[in-house]
Design a protein around this nucleic acid. Sequence first.
DNA 1: CCTACCGATCGGTAGG
DNA 2: CCTACCGATCGGTAGG
Lengths: 209, 209
Amino acid sequence: MSPRRSAADARQTRAAILARGVAIASVEGLEGLTIGRLADELTMSKSGVLGQFGSKQGLQLAVVDAAAAQFAEEVPDRTRDAAPGLPRLLALCEAWVSYVEREVFPGGCFFAAASGEFDDRTGPVRGAITGLITVWQRDLRQNVRIAIAAGDLPADTDADQIVFELTGQMLALNHAFRLHRDRSAPDRTRLAMGRLLGHPLPAAALQRV
Amino acid sequence: MSPRRSAADARQTRAAILARGVAIASVEGLEGLTIGRLADELTMSKSGVLGQFGSKQGLQLAVVDAAAAQFAEEVPDRTRDAAPGLPRLLALCEAWVSYVEREVFPGGCFFAAASGEFDDRTGPVRGAITGLITVWQRDLRQNVRIAIAAGDLPADTDADQIVFELTGQMLALNHAFRLHRDRSAPDRTRLAMGRLLGHPLPAAALQRV
DNA sequence: CCTACCGATCGGTAGG
DNA sequence: CCTACCGATCGGTAGG
């Protein structure tokens, strides 16, 4: 096997770097993710890692995109069976709670951690993080609006307010689960979200017994 | 003026280091706070900074304590006039919203940032952060219980659940205010907290005009 | 994707 | 609280 690899090999290498990078960054942060450590853990040279992304910022942007793809698989993609509006909203909330409970990322919600780390900075990495979170919240809001139009939420509901409060319960769960290792936090979150939406979360009853 | 300073001078130097340290750490994080940068900004030598704390971890612990003292001044100390129970609870919530709105720390809530940074680690710094947050949440819970006993909250209220949900709204505010620069977030938080407690926050009406 | 470097900066120490 | 260091590690480059 020659040291010069094919394009397919390069793609595989890139995927392996990103998988490790996402896991490390969810724990150590996107700044704490270093090229040297990544190279060490993958038994590669630093320049081999860096060559794929050009710079640390390029690596960070690729890691954010890879985390977004994984999040999409683990949360919204699991709600495809639920109809738009209240059913989808409840499914998205339950999928989010489950995503934290299952510890999809070893350091908890990747985007909660990344937004806390980059909220005081400027530049493309912050932009990528805020863009992805904005899209996620727009998806929630859209389903709130459909639920209102369908009569499944009160007509005077403020969609932005509901999304704001749901976001708070998501952050509370990540906080309590990671910092206090509070195992009752997922059910507390389900309860709070169910009250906000006037309906219990779909899987909560099953998981409670 | 000789290079050998008195104990009073040393105390002043220490206070100056901690004031800068808290501000830097609220933006860059407790790991991103470096001895070299601190020395630079204070036109001191690195060893002059390090000598006060022994190690970077000693500096981090002192910075956490200094931030806790400032938080105590800016939030709970401002609610001394409110009677224990629901009045104090409403005052604590309003003081917290105001603390974020006034940007007491340049990087937003110091403890929201620090707990996100250290939630996956072990050691005394994590311990100090969790300890302070636990005390703060115990204070909230205690006032919820007094409010229940006084009949100001329903008798079947779950105090831990209320504290959990209030914490979520605090985190939602910090998140929206820092990441999205959403200026409507403070009033959204007031609204959510007021609903949770069944009473509007004390200063909200005045500030709304 | 590798070896062999680069200057800058990290936390920390010796000794005054 | 200073100067003068230390080894380790940072992101990144040259050249193959």
